[in-house]
Nucleic acid binder design. Structure first.
Lengths: 200, 200
DNA sequence: GAACAATATCTAGCGTCGCTAGATTATGAG
DNA sequence: CTCATAATCTAGCGACGCTAGATATTGTTC
């Protein structure tokens, strides 16, 4: 009975096309241009079909955001892995984070700004989000005592997020980005409540 | 010719009522509930009147945001002034910032999240925004060399903004707020590239 | 292969939004 | 008192998210 499976595959493929179209339009023209009618046009189906895949428009945005979390996780992991020395790892991760946020503003917006309604409660934290957090925590753990890693990672994350948002909205000087990152690296390096007894 | 002045006063008062209504509705029911029709109802005029005061809905949101910047500036200044010791000043300012963002989420949203279109270019930075920045810079200056104050303030601000946003959207643990702020204070205190040769 | 049940999809439209053109009313000048 | 001007309103356009009910497509059964 491969027939049901083929249907399932077709459905999944169509769903992926919806998400891909949403992402492309958002990155090219902003999220306001991502309307259900437009997406329906793009995939060459009528509007109600979209509602058989997603509960509402916000759920489509959330699906794009989930992709974004996967992307940023790999970007952060790659940045961390190509750095031998801890301070350099922090710097490269920070740079990678800002690069991601500023080069894909619409995607980043979907991840952090837009679907304020679809909140993640603490228990049911989405795995994609958790993975991104862990990628940051891995770098922070190079400097902080295990007991302080969670709060330090949250703070590090908040700083990166804030830098991304304020730079994205033109409220801090793009020219001073390197200087700011240097400050962040220095701050984290100073967090020696119990460092890993390794190099440096 | 006091007649034109009376008209001007009436107009200004009506404009203030629009902004006040927008702020109240937003704080009570969220920005989605702030529609032009609803505001027109609230001030007991028809819709087009609103467009003689503001270019569009976003401009109304921006007016509320401007009020918010004034409010946060005084809140930060007050927090700084009631602290004698520098480290305490930083801590109190950080607490005041987060308190503001989390107790008036809609207002904070208007200031930093919503009107992404109405950007502030670097030159024409709105004075209200500049004043808020200066209030932060005053505290940062207690620790950093003059030459580094700007970047340090931007980074400090970014951290506070990130903490506010991530906590507001339920992505970091509210219970660890004090711990995170302690880390921020420690980091800033470590920024001794050329401290003020004063107390501590 | 024809008839039917189930599923998939579409057409058409509801209510609401931001915004505006053109009609209408109030206002102050001569 | 007349009349131009300014202030305000009524009515409606186009687009939005979303959905009920009609229609077409599909797979099953005899």
């Amino acid at each position: 009975m491969g027939i049901a499976e083929r249907k399932g595959r077709d459905r999944a493929e169509r769903e992926a096309r919806i998400v891909a179209a949403a992402r492309e339009i958002a990155e090219r023209e902003g999220w306001d241009a991502v309307t259900v009618r437009r997406l329906a046009d793009e995939i060459e189906y009528s509007q109600p079909v979209l509602y058989s895949h997603f509960e509402n428009r916000d759920a489509i945005v959330a699906a794009v955001a989930a992709e974004g979390f996967k992307d940023i996780t790999t970007a952060l992991q790659k940045a961390a892995s190509r750095s031998s020395e801890p301070r350099n790892a922090v710097k490269n991760v920070a740079l990678a984070y800002l690069d991601f946020a500023l080069r894909r503003p619409a995607l980043y917006e979907a991840m952090f700004v837009l679907p304020t309604n679809l909140r993640f409660a603490k228990a049911e934290t989405r795995p994609e989000l958790r993975a991104a957090f862990e990628a940051l925590a891995a770098v922070v753990a190079l400097f902080c005592a295990d007991v302080a890693v969670a709060a330090a990672t949250e703070t590090f994350w908040a700083t990166l997020h804030g830098l991304a948002e304020l730079e994205r909205s033109g409220r801090i000087r793009p020219s001073a980005r390197a200087e700011r990152i240097a400050l962040v690296v220095a701050a984290l390096a100073g967090c020696r409540n119990g460092p890993r007894p390794s190099d440096e």
